[in-house]
């Protein structure tokens, strides 16, 4: 097979013949990427790997992203506390307003045959969103999917062993979600950020 690298528009033209729901997206500072729906993604993955013109035989990276936006009030200078006055408890941050679907799985593919690359994003619903597992296409995806399931709570249909991989087996919640609330105690040990969220921490109010 001769080496014939394709650019993003050519790849999209090949894909959209069979999968009309797939769109080509561009942004200012990232490479072009394909946005694919979760339904029927397994067929798309098989096509990307098996089609001789594409031949994406290597899944370089599979990562998950929480796209929910911060909804923080602008930073205000904190006046110094008066001597003798009781400390003022900090205000709880505004709740996050997620845009649905607000989770994404990002697949970075590479073809060793044609030496071209591709980024595919699958947007997932925040509540009980499920993506078909591509473990049967690229075997390495099994560990990546376990990591995304553990830290972001995305389900993968058809995975042979979908367990937590980073956090302890009896952990609750998915820590990389932006609305994750830190647990109070674990194994009898008090945790210092009990009941807080990530943005209640040292950088509160400084988020862009």
């Amino acid at each position: 097979m001769s080496r014939q690298p394709l650019d993003a528009a050519q790849i999209h033209a090949l894909v959209v013949e069979r999968f009309p729901a797939v769109t080509l997206e561009r942004s200012e500072n990232a490479q072009p990427w394909l946005k694919a729906p979760a339904d029927g993604f397994l067929d798309l993955a098989r096509f990307l790997k098996d089609d001789p013109r594409l031949a994406y035989d290597s899944l370089m990276c599979l990562s998950g992203v929480d796209l929910a936006t911060f909804n923080l009030p602008p930073a205000k200078p904190v006046p110094p506390p008066k001597p003798g006055a009781a400390p003022v408890p900090p205000k709880p941050a505004e709740p996050i307003k997620p845009v649905e679907p607000s989770l994404a799985c990002v697949y970075l593919l590479h073809s060793l045959v044609h030496r071209h690359r591709l980024m595919v994003k699958v947007l997932v619903d925040r509540n009980a969103g499920v993506v078909p597992s591509v473990e049967s296409v690229w075997g390495v995806a099994g560990y990546f999917e376990r990591e995304i399931f553990d830290l972001l709570g995305v389900g993968f249909a058809g995975h042979h062993d979908l367990r937590r991989i980073m956090t302890p087996e009896d952990w609750t919640g998915h820590p990389l979600r932006k609305d994750y609330v830190y647990p109070t105690r674990y194994n009898g040990v008090e945790l210092r950020r009990a009941g807080q969220r990530f943005e209640d921490g040292p950088y509160a109010g400084n988020a862009p």
Binding site: M166, P175, P183, R192, G201, P202
Partner: peptide
């Protein structure tokens, strides 16, 4: 990690 991490134990002497 003691102050801001959810996953790190604050001292193994516990």
């Amino acid at each position: 990690f003691s102050k801001y991490s959810y996953s790190v134990l604050n001292g193994m002497d516990k």
